[in-house]
């Protein structure tokens, strides 16, 4: 029994890091634009399709090359998203900002479906295998996700604190008008932020291929539950996303011990609602 609980904890935490990365990518855009990117799950899916579908399967390039080329593509996607969606919507009311990103996501979904068809596929042998810690098991891909999540957060923090662009991004986060007055090109900044967010989406999409295979709906659940991670950890606070992700993952995993397993999916949403009601700034959140 103890073994089961520990194994559930490990699985839950591992999943939590996926949620954490999702929280990070949308928090970046939220901080920079005040918009919640409802198309993020489609961008994650797009990342997986571009890397595994276009470069690896259709063009037969080796995985590392596919990945690097995909980064370039996703940067362009980020720029496109910023120019066509984020910047125009920024000035509009909430309804349009939400619906705008939702519709953008649906357009991407349809494009993917028309270009790649609907059959799920996978990259054989990609990051398969498990790591054993005593009698506990964790999939290798989960280990990579954990490592990457930590690296991404650390890298972003360093980037935001030390580089000029990063500092500019922080200014834009805090006060757009003031940033503009100080000569920061806000629109350009948002484009860069969107590009970084899209690349993180690519990473997520790529890393979950061994878990979910490449399919049109591969990211819809982690997309929605990823919102919970950000809220729980501290909306818009990057290290908070990791905490939030782990908390959500653990609670979800542990819930099978107390409630019928079919309701497990509802748990993440319930946690989301509770936090929004009680502590919308999240566990580590500071600003409101």
């Amino acid at each position: 029994m103890l073994n089961t609980i520990l194994q559930l904890a490990v699985s839950g935490a591992a999943l939590g890091f996926v949620y954490a990365l999702v929280g990070i990518e949308y928090s970046l855009i939220w901080n920079a634009t005040g918009l919640l990117n409802f198309s993020h799950d489609k961008i994650i899916t797009l990342g997986a399709y571009v890397a595994a579908g276009l470069f690896f399967t259709k063009m037969g390039l080796p995985i590392p090359v596919s990945f690097i080329l995909s980064i370039v593509v996703m940067i362009l996607v980020g720029f496109l998203m910023a120019t066509v969606v984020l910047n125009p919507l920024r000035k509009m009311t909430t309804i349009f900002t939400i619906m705008g990103t939702i519709l953008f996501g649906k357009m991407i979904y349809e494009l993917i479906r028309l270009l790649y068809g609907s059959a799920p596929f996978t990259v054989p042998g990609l990051m398969t295998g498990t790591v054993h810690i005593g009698s506990l098991v964790i999939a290798k891909s989960n280990v990579y996700i954990i490592v990457i999540a930590v690296i991404v957060v650390a890298a972003l923090q360093i980037f935001m604190q030390t580089t000029k662009t990063g500092k500019a991004m922080r200014c834009v986060q805090q006060n757009k008008k003031a940033s503009e007055l100080m000569g920061i090109n806000v629109k350009q900044n948002i484009r860069i932020t969107a590009a970084i967010s899209s690349v993180i989406c690519l990473i997520i999409g790529f890393m979950v291929i061994p878990l979910y295979t490449v399919s049109l709906s591969m990211a819809s659940m982690i997309g929605l539950k990823g919102f919970a991670a950000g809220v729980v950890g501290g909306f818009g606070f990057l290290p908070g996303c990791i905490v939030g992700g782990i908390v959500v993952g653990l609670i979800e995993s542990a819930s099978v011990l107390v409630i019928p397993s079919v309701y497990k999916d509802a748990v993440a949403f319930l946690v989301l609602i509770i936090f929004l009601l009680i502590k919308p700034t999240g566990i580590l959140g500071k600003k409101s």
């Binding site: 919640l36 909430t94 939400i98 929605l224 919102f227 809220v231 019928p260 079919v262 309701y263 999916d265 509802a266 949403f269 319930l270 989301l272 609602i273 929004l276 009601l277 919308p280």
Partner: peptide, 28 residues
């Protein structure tokens, strides 16, 4: 009542969560 304390995007998230929970409960 929740809509009093939550607004904007947070409220939209809450309503999405509500919809999903309803669907899952009805389904199971």
């Amino acid at each position: 009542y929740p809509s009093l304390r939550i607004s904007g995007v947070y409220l939209s998230l809450t309503t999405i969560a509500f919809g999903e929970i309803v669907r899952l409960v009805l389904n199971n």
